[in-house]
Design a protein around this nucleic acid. Structure first.
Lengths: 339, 339
DNA sequence: ATGAAAGCGCTAACAG
DNA sequence: CTGTTAGCGCTTTCAT
């Protein structure tokens, strides 16, 4: 028999008996001490202290029909993206007095279990990375009105659920205009991300918005596929340079590809060409010159996701799509002097 | 009333009724389908499928007096250390059919005592970073025989609990000997970490072991404080160089300080001086030359921690201290050619 | 192999 | 303000 089942901790009954009150009083103290008579509350508190009483969550959950737990469901637990997101979520969850349960789906591809690690059976709501699990679950849970928030990142066919995104398009447009207006660029090479990627698509659109706003032609030859990946970006840029493609700046869909581009520019002796990335990864700030980029508010995404989820749990209405603003950081590789 | 309390999902009773059996049978199916008559099992399974039945965890927990949940309690959710650790823990937890609850203590300095986010009330065991919470809790929980595993990292006065560490000392000794035997170094500068840091202390001891094993004198002037921090390390190295301190290699307690050292060597035109770090951080592999280092098995630490915790929960005996081996990666900045 | 029934520890009416 | 008393949904004897 597992050790965990041996231990015996005091229950609400023990406290009630010791304090000479009923269990209801103890329960009330737990949930709203203010409604008790001051003297009673004092006594109860003292007994709890003495007995080192801590209410069992399972019992509260069962009785109150909620778990005060939020689930985070994602495929991978890595990347520069995940950690700040988690930090934001954890902060907000704590603030609202919720716990955070984490599960990666990279394992349970095939564990056709009835008990998924995360779901309505063990949390009050879910923070979901689209693509991390079959849409079938999302649909079922949506049908059951189980509260969920999507962290928009990948693109996927999804039910209409509240989602958090960042202002990819607007920011990418701003970056484009910065290159045009501040640095006088007119032929901006764009390093696009993967086709199926939500952010990638929005950012590309923003680049095109920017060109249009500047009255510049949209030359499709200037749009290359960087795959959000340093190596691909390097290769594709090098080839473009060798083939004599004319351009006077590079805008990358993300910092990884921007780093690849930077490398290729350096190799070709073109370090003067303005370059801007997107995301604000750590490596970017350590490159020489530091990467000009757009800072994504990842931690805020995590916070807002939790705030909205909690909002739903409290019966509030939340917007179907929330976009968080990014912060331009156009210094270094774009040509602007560092502050 | 919260939306979460409105939903109504089928209970074990609904399934029992539909399947024409008793709730006990359903419970048995849940816990050990094999003991049912094949035909009964089939019917139960079908009904569950049809009703989309999923057992409520709170009820199971309350009844079975365990949660199948593990808690991870740490002060900060950041650093290159945390993510691989989390990955390892999540994998192992999933494998053993446990959930992982995460909580950072950076918030609850002052929050109400009762109902800590993590503890015996909501998990079966805890993975603890020493220093993340007052020893008082550890002691109480130990008294109550609540299963815990320590991730040894910081140094602290702690109860005798099973802990996971890495072979800091042995690896640091190996690195020292590599510098001596392969590169013929005789005056190795050591960049020590913070005083109170467990790993730092062990690694320093390993360096000293190495010197002793090589029959080299232990010159205390060669031990500098790098504080596991790039800037400090850079500053301290630069000063040493300017003051004319004689050394023919640098061994750093961690990669961050090694990177600082590398910078100072470069600044002084001393790039030929062999340099080895410790940890295997990402940045190290991107520096030029790539940092020679000792790869810490962080993900494995996470896995083993969970395995041991689960072991305790299953009534097994686990060692009080487990040391995981590191992997030498002596290429690049030590002078050995890259493979 | 299956059913009946007694909890697990707490919350939430309903009384008083 | 406080006590009484049903449950919450499952597990687990104890019978059959």
């Amino acid at each position: 028999m597992p050790a965990s089942q041996q231990r015996k901790t005091p229950t609400i009954r023990d406290v009630a008996r010791e304090a000479g009150v009923s269990v209801a009083t103890i329960s009330r103290f737990l949930n709203n001490p203010a409604i008790l008579q001051a003297e009673t509350a004092r006594r109860v508190e003292a007994v709890m202290e003495e007995l080192e009483y801590i209410p069992k969550l399972a019992a509260r959950n069962l009785s109150s029909r909620n778990t005060r737990t939020l689930g985070l469901i994602t495929e991978y637990l890595d990347g520069e993206f995940f950690l700040p997101l988690l930090t934001g979520m954890e902060s907000a969850a704590f603030e609202h007095n919720y716990s955070l349960l984490i599960s990666s789906t990279r394992h349970w591809k095939e564990s056709r279990q009835r008990m998924l690690p995360l779901g309505p059976h063990n949390c009050d709501g879910l923070l979901v990375f689209p693509g991390s699990l079959p849409a079938e679950y999302l649909e079922r849970w949506q049908r059951q009105e189980f509260p969920m928030i999507l962290i928009q990142h990948m693109l996927a066919e999804l039910p209409a659920l509240p989602r958090i995104t960042i202002e990819n398009r607007q920011s990418s447009r701003d970056a484009t205009l910065h290159l045009v207006q501040v640095h006088g660029c007119r032929r901006i090479l764009y390093l696009a991300g993967p086709e199926g990627h939500h952010d990638a698509r929005q950012r590309l659109a923003g680049y095109q918005d920017g060109l249009a706003a500047a009255g510049l032609p949209a030359d499709s030859q200037l749009i290359l596929s960087g795959q959000f990946n340093e190596e691909s970006a390097f290769a594709v840029c090098r080839q473009a340079i060798q083939q004599g493609l004319q351009f006077d700046a590079i805008l990358a869909g993300d910092d990884d590809s921007a780093l690849g581009a930077l490398e290729s520019l350096r190799a070709a002796g073109l370090e003067a060409v303005p370059l801007i990335g997107f995301d604000g990864i750590l490596l970017g700030q350590r490159s020489r010159p530091p990467l000009a980029t757009v800072l994504a508010p990842t931690e805020e995404v995590g916070e807002l996701a939790v705030q909205h989820l909690v909002g739903i749990l409290e019966g509030k209405q939340v917007p179907l799509e929330s976009q968080l603003p990014c912060t331009p950081h156009f210094f270094g590789s774009c040509g602007c002097p560092l502050p």
